[in-house]
Design a protein around this nucleic acid. Structure first.
Lengths: 152, 152
DNA sequence: CCCGATTCTTGAACGATTCCAGATTGGTGT
DNA sequence: ACACCAATCTGGAATCGTTCAAGAATCGGG
């Protein structure tokens, strides 16, 4: 299945920015909007900030991308794989990685009392320290030279 | 245990803004910083935005408050009770409520592979619709109640 | 190949939060 | 009680990520 066909199937027009965004998110695991912009501009130097946001929204809406929004950090995007995995976020540098849930397909999905809410999703986020921040306890104050695994 | 004593025990100074913030957060279940500011100003009209943020941070740091940051919404604060409960967030209006985890003390707390991360917390957020938004699917734009503006 | 709807560009605005510098205050030691 | 000094507060401006607005460009069915 090509990206072109995938777009058509969902009733979306096939445009250069959209293909480029899909390619970029596929290549850079958990890219921020800003990172996507940078990547896309290597191929299409003129794409606007707005175009990237529009495309990310459009693709997220039709389920071709998944958006992750760790508290206190910019949103990240990943190509949606059908599985229901979760994420770890580093408290030090914000690095993000995938985590498969150890216990069954959907644990925690059935809260005891929901106060009348209709629940459609349960989202699990793990917080901790990435390997780099474990060995360099206070280095995260240096915002300019992040040791973050996916920052470079 | 008075708030005054609780503050002293943690080595924090006892100031009017701090007591007022504690009182406000205790009274308004999941208040945003802005809401806390409004509440506090009823008693102390001159407190600054900054003072409220400073106090919220200080109290959060020593564990007297817990901060909740639902994706796409302003942070909320609650008086910490020792239990480990989770939260439901309404996709329609951003309403937030407490949820007790149905399955045991800490399910999902042991992910299979953590990519070398040291995990200290597992956070669970449920997403769905609150009772009001279930019966009024698209009406939340016309509501006067200043709940969080939503991207939906 | 033409047209209308969708998508893109540019540029400015936005809300939540933080940074800054200086004035004020709490509470420990005397 | 008194003074002192660091912790705290005030006011205002700045920051980040994201969105709004209006017009120009593009996609793709007929």
């Amino acid at each position: 299945m090509t990206d072109t066909n995938a777009l058509r199937e969902r009733g979306l027009r096939v445009t250069a920015p959209r293909l480029a965004v899909l390619e970029a998110v596929g290549r850079v695991p958990h890219a921020t909007a800003d990172r996507v912009l940078t990547e896309v501009r290597r191929a299409l130097p003129t794409v606007s900030v707005q175009a990237v946001y529009d495309v990310l929204h459009a693709l997220t809406d039709v389920g071709m991308l998944r958006r992750i929004e760790p508290a206190g950090h910019a949103a990240r995007y990943e190509r949606r794989v059908a599985d229901n995995h979760h994420h770890v976020v580093c408290r030090g540098c914000g690095a993000l990685d995938d985590v498969d849930c150890a216990v069954g397909p959907s644990p925690c999905l059935t809260p005891s009392s929901t106060s009348g809410f209709t629940i459609d999703t349960a989202e699990v986020t793990y917080w901790g320290l990435c390997p780099a921040c474990q060995s360099a306890p206070d280095t995260h104050t240096t915002r300019d030279q992040p040791v973050a695994p996916d920052a470079a």
